[in-house]
């Protein structure tokens, strides 16, 4: 039923060293040219459900021939999930923490076309010609301070709420998704990951891992590095290459 995919990928998630629960989820589906990382939020309730629902829903989207239709399907699905996790959610009186949401970063690839769709601070990186590019731009307060108040990266990072998200699935009535379309070159490698992974690693470390040819070896290198640090958050990564 499934045609051989020119893409190889490997994915892994780990609760880290501090958190008891893992609220991250991933989709690793090279046959469909679709990969996703979602990082659930909501503290003690529903974060894992939110990220899992995103991944399960995207996994069941029909595989169509038309790239644009597939991209539209992904966007439409995420907008529906935004409604489902937001305005359709049953809330309990006196509980102001009954919020259910998740970041999402998805990569859709077909032929030489690729699209990265995201909301929140989970990231998509591209390794091309021995250089690392961050394709997604975080929807976080830190990024907003840098963009809108011309704050330096160091100052923005020092802000007490630097990691607060400015966008996520389920967070607001209207979800605005960012979409970046690009042409795929031979030798390209992609990395989708949650903040728990990239917070603990330098860009050099990310680049060094992505320069390895086997996705599972690259993945192992990334996790070895991140788990040597404090690993206070859940960490998830998907490495994709031709």
């Amino acid at each position: 039923m499934l045609v051989a995919s020119p893409w190889r990928s490997a994915a892994r998630t780990d609760p880290g060293k501090v958190r008891a629960r893992n609220e991250d989820a991933f989709l690793d589906c090279p046959q469909q040219g679709l990969w996703v990382v979602a990082d659930g939020m909501g503290g003690h309730q529903g974060g894992d459900i939110a990220s899992q629902l995103i991944v399960a829903s995207l996994a069941e989207l029909p595989v169509q021939d038309d790239f644009d239709e597939r991209l539209k399907g992904i966007r439409q699905c995420l907008h529906w999930l935004n409604r489902r996790l937001g305005q359709e959610l049953t809330v309990t009186a006196g509980r102001h923490d009954s919020i259910m949401g998740s970041t999402v970063v998805a990569l859709l690839v077909e032929g030489n076309r690729a699209a990265c769709i995201w909301a929140g601070d989970s990231r998509c990186y591209l390794w091309r010609d021995q250089r690392l590019y961050q394709l997604s731009k975080d929807h976080s307060l830190q990024q907003q301070l840098i963009d809108e108040q011309n704050m330096s990266v160091e100052d923005a990072r020092a802000h007490p709420a630097a990691h607060a998200l400015t966008r996520a699935v389920g967070a607001a009535e209207q979800l605005t998704l960012d979409v970046l379309e690009l042409e795929v070159y031979p030798g390209d490698a992609f990395l989708l990951c949650s903040d728990g992974l990239y917070q603990g690693l330098s860009s050099d470390a990310l680049g060094n891992a992505l320069s390895l040819t086997a996705p599972h070896v690259a993945l192992e290198r990334l996790f070895d590095g991140a788990l040597r640090g404090s690993a206070r958050d859940n960490l998830t990564a998907v490495v994709i290459r031709q």
Partner: peptide
């Protein structure tokens, strides 16, 4: 598709009979 997430300690098969396949929705 291979997915991974944690929802507590929900086993793969409940009551020796129902194999959990995917999350459809969540309520309160």
């Amino acid at each position: 598709a291979p997915t991974k997430a944690s929802v507590g300690v929900l086993p793969d098969v409940l009551a020796g009979r129902y194999r959990i396949e995917r999350l459809l929705g969540a309520g309160g």
